[in-house]
């Protein structure tokens, strides 16, 4: 993969990120789940307002989501249950993925950063919930395709402006 051109590598990453966003927007969560590796590490850390001099605004102990393959499977199974009231009727979500940059690459994996804006609405609401974040992903080359091996979602919110995080970011 080191032999790929920089452009081809970034295109492959973009293609992956757009494809998974499309699956999630379409509520095809099981198909999305097929795109993650068995050792997936998925995190959404809690952010706090800190002074500029503070080392980090993101907690290394507290998370809105901190998932492995098994706990993600449980969430996805629950979402497909007709009694999952937070998503039945489902929220309408549109993921806008931009500013894609390849941060590092080796034979097996690509580290990639992007911006994420989720436009989320429920029922008759006319003002959407907007969730804004940076994603830090590790994509792994497997036999047939790229898969998501790690994702950290760095939210721009300390107080979440949405009723619940019953969606994948």
């Amino acid at each position: 993969m080191n032999g790929d051109t920089e452009h081809a590598r970034r295109s492959a990453c973009e293609e992956f990120l757009y494809h998974e966003a499309h699956l999630l927007d379409d509520r095809r969560v099981s198909e999305w789940f097929d795109l993650v590796t068995e050792d997936i590490d998925y995190r959404v850390p809690v952010r706090t307002t800190r002074e500029r001099s503070a080392e980090d605004e993101f907690s290394d102990q507290s998370y809105h989501l901190k998932e492995d393959h098994e706990s993600l499977r449980v969430r996805i199974e629950r979402l497909e249950n007709d009694f999952a009231w937070s998503e039945n009727p489902p929220s309408r979500n549109r993921r806008f993925v931009s500013n894609v940059a390849v941060l590092g690459v080796d034979d097996a994996e690509i580290d990639v950063r992007c911006n994420l804006l989720v436009h989320r609405s429920h029922e008759d609401e006319t003002s959407p919930d907007l969730l804004s974040a940076e994603r830090r992903d590790t994509l792994r080359r497997t036999d047939d395709r790229l898969r998501l091996a790690a994702r950290t979602v760095l939210l721009d919110h300390t107080v979440l402006p949405t009723n619940s995080l019953s969606i994948i970011l």
Binding site: V46, S62, T158
Partner: peptide, 8 residues
């Protein structure tokens, strides 16, 4: 453990 979750 850590910081509280907060959401509106």
């Amino acid at each position: 453990i850590g910081d509280p979750h907060r959401w509106e």
